[in-house]
Nucleic acid binder design. Structure first.
Length: 340
DNA sequence: AAAGGTCTCAACCGCAAGGCA
DNA sequence: TTGCCTTGCGGTTGAGACCTT
């Protein structure tokens, strides 16, 4: 009401932008930039509010925008990132140069959601709809590997023969809930879906409860799924206490681990000697930066280990993830037969 | 050809966070 | 510390395009 009357008082235009308005805005920004959006309309001679000008620039006039339909690869990236980030459109958009959050949000709501549902996947949780309905047990089959919900105690070693099953797939893992404690040296991960996305899009299988990894490995899955055909992970981690939000919540927002008080990132070392340490005090901005560096990097980056603030840690734990060989390829035609 | 339904996408709205006086 | 202003984000809306009957 207040805004409406404000717009009315100012006789501000609303609705679609005319070519003349676009031209005025473009010309103004080209000349003066946009240090303050609130002053742009006045200076540019537009009967619009600053917010509207900003939106028009970001979503339409920016010169670096990519126009046209989303490619299959872009869609795959969006699906993968959504599994990790939830409805954080701006962060997803940051990984897709030339695409806007609005565009991605529209694509998600109009197309991808529908596609996922058609393949039996709940677009909010990225779990099979059958599982959402509570009809599945916790045993998962994926190609040659059969993975089962479990807890790892003490010497955590995970070896799963899943590499064969993934050569024709895009795979990724997102983490919904993780907790660990030193006292028992127990790491337990629950509601940790590992999704295997059939490249041919004939089916979207899902691993509902794979307890295997850390946040670091989850994020590395995202990296590897798109840019590295094969990556052997060997993770050594000092994990802070971390507990995620509601893994089964309908809100994809709450299922993103980034929402949930993650206080520090663990180390991650690959067998090739590349060591990762995600920065301490991992706020969203760092996730974005992390993705920027990792996800789009042509080669594996190198991070130096950093100490954690004592205040950030409730417990310390150590685990290793060995020989989890994941092979992600984007251009294989067929999905291997799943075990029944 | 027309009517009604569905889809797409640009734009708006409300809220939250951050900066600053 | 408080309040105002600006910016950014995610959800929602609505107009026009497209499809179906």
């Amino acid at each position: 009401m207040g805004k409406q009357s404000y717009l009315h008082k100012q006789k501000l235009r609303r609705g679609l932008w005319s070519p003349e308005e676009d031209e005025k805005l473009l010309k103004h920004i080209a000349e003066y930039g946009h240090t303050s959006w609130s002053s742009v309309p006045k200076l540019a001679g537009l009967q619009r509010c600053g917010k509207s000008c900003r939106l028009r620039w970001i979503n339409y006039l920016r010169p670096d925008l990519k126009r046209g339909k989303f490619s299959k690869e872009e869609e795959d990236i969006i699906i993968e990132l959504h599994a990790v980030l939830g409805n954080r459109w701006s962060q997803i958009a940051a990984q897709l140069p030339g695409r806007t959050d609005n565009e991605i949000k529209n694509l998600w709501n109009s197309c991808i959601k529908k596609k996922l549902r058609q393949t039996g996947i709940d677009p909010n949780t990225h779990k099979p709809l059958s599982e959402i309905e509570g009809t599945e047990d916790d045993k998962i089959s994926s190609g040659s590997g059969t993975l089962k919900q479990t807890e790892f105690e003490s010497d955590l070693t995970l070896k799963q023969g899943i590499e064969d099953s993934t050569t024709n797939s895009i795979g990724y893992c997102s983490l919904s809930k993780l907790s660990c404690s030193t006292s028992t040296t127990t790491l337990s991960v629950s509601s940790n879906p590992l999704l295997w996305h059939n490249q041919s899009n004939k089916g979207l299988g899902l691993n509902p409860e794979l307890s295997c990894s850390s946040i670091a490995s989850a994020t590395t899955f995202v990296s590897s799924s798109n840019f590295y055909n094969s990556m052997d992970l060997k993770a050594t981690s000092d994990l802070p206490y971390w507990e995620g939000g509601n893994p089964n919540g309908s809100s994809s927002k709450s299922s993103s681990f980034l929402n949930d008080g993650l206080s520090s990132w663990p180390d991650l070392t690959t067998e090739r000697g590349n060591k990762y340490l995600l920065p301490e005090d991992s706020e969203e901005m760092k996730w974005s930066q992390y993705l920027q560096g990792k996800f789009l990097a042509p080669s594996l980056p190198h991070y130096q280990s950093q100490p954690l603030h004592a205040g950030d840690l409730k417990v310390e734990s150590h685990f290793e993830l060995e020989s989890l060989n994941l092979c992600f390829q984007n251009h294989q035609p067929e999905l291997p037969q799943l075990q029944s």
